[in-house]
Amino acid sequence: MDSPLLHIDNVHKHFAGLHALSDINLDIRPQETHAIIGPNGAGKSTLLNVCVGRLAPSQGKVLFAGTELTGRHPHEINQLGVARVFQTPELFEDLTVVENVMIPIFSRKDGAFSLSLASRFDKQGAIADKAMSILADVGLGDHVNHLTNALSRGDKRRLELAMCLVQDPKLLLLDEPTAGMARADTNATIDLLNEIKKTGVTIVIIEHDMHVVFSLADRISVLAGGRIIAQGPPEEIKGNPKVIEAYLGEEQV
C-alpha cells in the first residue's frame, strides 16, 4: 500500500473541557475519495479545521505528504497543495464571479506576495481563460460577470469549488459541498467530483447526504462523539451495527 497522503496521528482537540476530538488516527491514501460521516456535533468540521490550520490540535499531529502541518499558517498549508471548501461558503462577496476564480490563480503564480503594479488585473488573458474554463466546468459559465453576493446558495458552493479546483490541489477538503442544493444540482456536483477524482486528486468529503457519500466514496470513516467508531469501504459501513446505533441514537434524543 502507498504511504498515506494525509496522516492524522493521535489528534485530540479540547475546547475548555469539551472533547471535540479524541485520539483520531486517520490515513488518507493518495487518489482515494474518503468520506467522513457522522451525526451533528461529531467533530467532522473540527477535524478539517485542524488539517488546514484554522485550529491547532491540543495533542497529536497532522502530516501531509510527509510534511508536518501542525503549527503552520493556513496560507502555507494551501501553498503545499491543500484546498478547502467550507460549510458556509467563504467567497469574495463584493467581487465578480470571474475575479473570485482569478485570485486563487495569482496565489499559485506569485506565491505568497507580489507587489505587481506593472500590469493590469484585467489584462491577464491566460489567467482569465483558465478561470473561465473552470467556471464553465462547474456550470457557472453564464454568471462570470455577476457579483458574487447575487448568487444563489448552490451557485456559491459551486463557485467555492471552482476557486479550489483552479489551484490544481493535491488534496481537496470538502465540507458538505452539496448542502442546500436541489437534487439535479447535487447530481451535477457528483458527476463533477467523479471527473475530478479521475484526474488523481485526493478528496476528503464531509457529507450528510448518503446518496452523495455512496456515489463518491472509496472509503468511509464514521465519527461520533469525537471518535472514529468505524472505518472501511461503503458496503461494510452500510451494515455496521455501531454506525446504525450512532445515527439512531441521535435521532432518539
Partner: peptide, 12 residues
Amino acid sequence: SNQDRMRYTGFN
C-alpha cells in the same frame, strides 16, 4: 472582502 478566504487561498 474576505481575509480568511485569502489565507486559505494561499496568500500571506
